[in-house]
Design a protein around this nucleic acid. Structure first.
Lengths: 128, 128
DNA sequence: CGAGCCAACTAGGTCAACTATGTTGCTCAC
DNA sequence: GTGAGCAACATAGTTGACCTAGTTGGCTCG
């Protein structure tokens, strides 16, 4: 189904969906067909579809909401001026926040560990 | 190891690499460590690393050359493909991170309190 | 000496399965 | 009639395996 243009399947699907979005066939706010649906539709495996959606997601064209679906982003909020300066600026903020998160996480982990060992220890720790 | 920030591993790795690129620690033209290398380095599986590299690839920050490696793109040649949705994307990330910080803070506070008064054994392990 | 092959690396693509988590709608007991 | 619980379905993340394909360097053999 995905032809053999030399392009990988997940990119072909991503392109197709992107075209549908840009072309208005998939209006902003509307949900894409579900992952399994798309898989059947394109004759591809789930993994490939997830990969394709992932691409669109990192492109910002689409937003996935767990349990609900993947929705086309409003045109207003996506293609707008992606000023390099803006990105840099906000990126800094991100870095800062990330540092905070890391710090908090570390403290949390430590403290939670103490708490865990001091309370009833139950098997079934979920880790891998 | 990765994790604990609430952010998925592949995004953390992507972020880390992105930071190294932006920070100059990985200069344009230099190759990233090999996939397997990164996997060991981050204590993650190959799949996760490939996912992370994939993100950077679709962002245009990096170019993979089969058989050779993944190379940091020259700063000159990447601004043009100015990525639509970048600002939106990062903004969203900020929002997410803020939420994470709030969540972590809350959990930290709670847990630290419990630890302080942990003469009483209390179950109630709340994983996720 | 040189040509050619081969082995060891590299990235990239695909698949299948599992887990986690969120949403929604139905059913059934009260 | 209401609400608690459950089942079905959704995205998301992760793992591990297998295969393709390009690059490189060394080794062998003519």
């Amino acid at each position: 189904m995905v032809k053999n243009t030399g392009q990988p399947a997940y990119l072909q699907i991503a392109d197709d969906l992107r075209a549908q979005i840009r072309g208005g066939s998939l209006a902003p706010g509307t949900p894409l067909p579900s992952t399994t649906r798309l898989a059947e539709q394109y004759g591809a495996s789930l993994s490939v579809v997830k990969l394709a959606v992932g691409v669109l997601r990192t492109e910002g064209l689409v937003i996935g909401q767990q349990g609900k679906g993947v929705f086309v982003r409003d045109a207003d909020e996506l293609p707008p001026p992606a000023k390099a300066g803006d990105v840099a600026e906000v990126s800094e903020e991100v870095a800062e926040l990330r540092a905070t998160v890391q710090d908090l996480s570390k403290r949390l982990a430590k403290v939670e560990e103490q708490l865990a060992t001091s309370t009833t220890r139950r098997p079934g720790r979920s880790s891998r």
